[in-house]
Measured scan of single mutants.
Amino acid sequence: TEKQERAIEYIRRLGYSEEEARRILKKANGNPDLAKEIARRIG
């Protein structure tokens, strides 16, 4: 989804690889607090 793409872009800007960014997002899917934090940061 567009939100996922924005989140991946944001995480990659922090210096993670695409693969790492996707792994972090997968974790965020099972972790509402982390997901909220990422969403808050990407606006």
Rank of each mutant, 00 (worst) to 15 (best):
T1G: 09
T1S: 12
T1A: 11
E2D: 14
E2P: 13
E2Q: 12
E2V: 12
E2H: 11
K3Y: 11
K3T: 13
K3G: 13
K3V: 14
K3S: 14
Q4T: 10
Q4P: 06
Q4S: 10
Q4G: 08
Q4V: 13
Q4L: 12
Q4H: 08
Q4K: 07
Q4R: 09
Q4E: 11
E5F: 08
E5Q: 13
E5W: 09
E5L: 12
E5D: 11
E5G: 06
E5S: 08
E5I: 11
R6Q: 15
R6T: 09
R6I: 10
R6S: 12
R6W: 09
A7E: 03
A7V: 11
I8Q: 03
I8N: 02
I8F: 06
I8M: 07
I8D: 02
I8R: 04
E9W: 10
E9D: 11
E9N: 09
E9S: 10
E9Y: 08
E9L: 11
E9I: 10
E9H: 08
E9P: 01
E9Q: 11
Y10W: 10
Y10D: 07
Y10T: 05
Y10S: 06
Y10K: 02
Y10N: 04
Y10P: 01
I11R: 00
I11A: 02
I11L: 05
I11W: 02
R12Q: 13
R13K: 14
R13H: 13
R13L: 14
R13I: 08
R13P: 00
R13A: 15
R13T: 14
L14F: 06
L14D: 01
L14V: 03
L14C: 05
L14H: 04
L14M: 11
L14Q: 04
L14T: 02
L14N: 02
L14E: 02
G15N: 03
G15T: 00
G15Q: 02
G15F: 01
G15W: 01
G15D: 01
G15K: 02
Y16G: 00
Y16M: 07
Y16N: 03
Y16A: 03
Y16P: 00
S17I: 03
S17H: 04
S17W: 02
S17V: 03
S17P: 05
S17N: 07
S17T: 14
E18S: 07
E18W: 08
E18D: 12
E18G: 06
E19N: 10
E19W: 12
E19F: 11
E19G: 10
E19V: 12
E19Y: 12
E19R: 10
E19P: 08
E19Q: 12
E19H: 11
E20K: 06
E20H: 09
E20F: 13
E20I: 09
E20D: 12
E20M: 12
E20T: 11
E20C: 13
A21W: 02
A21L: 04
A21E: 00
A21H: 00
A21P: 00
R22A: 06
R22S: 05
R22V: 08
R22P: 00
R22D: 05
R22G: 04
R22Y: 13
R22T: 07
R23F: 13
R23M: 14
R23T: 13
R23E: 14
R23I: 13
R23H: 13
I24C: 05
I24S: 01
I24L: 08
I24N: 00
I24M: 07
I24E: 00
I24Y: 04
L25A: 01
L25D: 00
L25W: 06
L25F: 06
L25R: 00
L25Y: 04
L25T: 01
K26L: 12
K26V: 11
K26R: 13
K26D: 12
K26P: 00
K26Q: 12
K26G: 08
K26A: 13
K27Q: 14
K27G: 08
K27W: 15
A28N: 02
A28K: 01
A28M: 03
A28G: 03
N29R: 10
N29E: 08
N29A: 09
N29T: 04
N29Q: 10
N29K: 12
N29I: 04
N29P: 01
N29G: 14
G30L: 05
G30E: 04
G30P: 00
G30Q: 05
G30I: 02
G30K: 03
N31S: 06
N31Y: 04
N31T: 02
N31W: 05
P32N: 03
P32G: 07
P32A: 13
P32H: 05
P32L: 09
P32Y: 06
P32W: 06
P32T: 09
D33P: 02
D33G: 07
D33S: 09
D33C: 07
D33F: 07
D33A: 10
D33I: 08
D33H: 08
L34Q: 06
L34P: 01
A35M: 04
A35E: 02
A35R: 02
A35V: 03
A35G: 02
A35K: 01
A35H: 01
A35C: 04
A35D: 01
K36S: 05
K36H: 04
K36M: 15
K36N: 04
K36F: 07
K36W: 07
K36P: 01
E37M: 08
E37D: 09
E37T: 07
E37K: 11
E37W: 10
I38L: 11
I38T: 04
I38Y: 07
I38E: 05
A39F: 02
A39W: 02
A39I: 05
A39C: 09
A39G: 03
R40W: 09
R40L: 15
R40V: 12
R40E: 15
R40D: 15
R40S: 09
R40I: 14
R40Q: 14
R41C: 13
R41Q: 15
R41K: 14
R41H: 12
R41E: 13
R41G: 14
R41F: 09
I42T: 13
I42L: 15
I42D: 14
I42H: 15
I42Y: 14
I42F: 14
I42N: 15
I42E: 15
I42G: 15
I42V: 12
G43L: 15
G43K: 15
G43V: 15
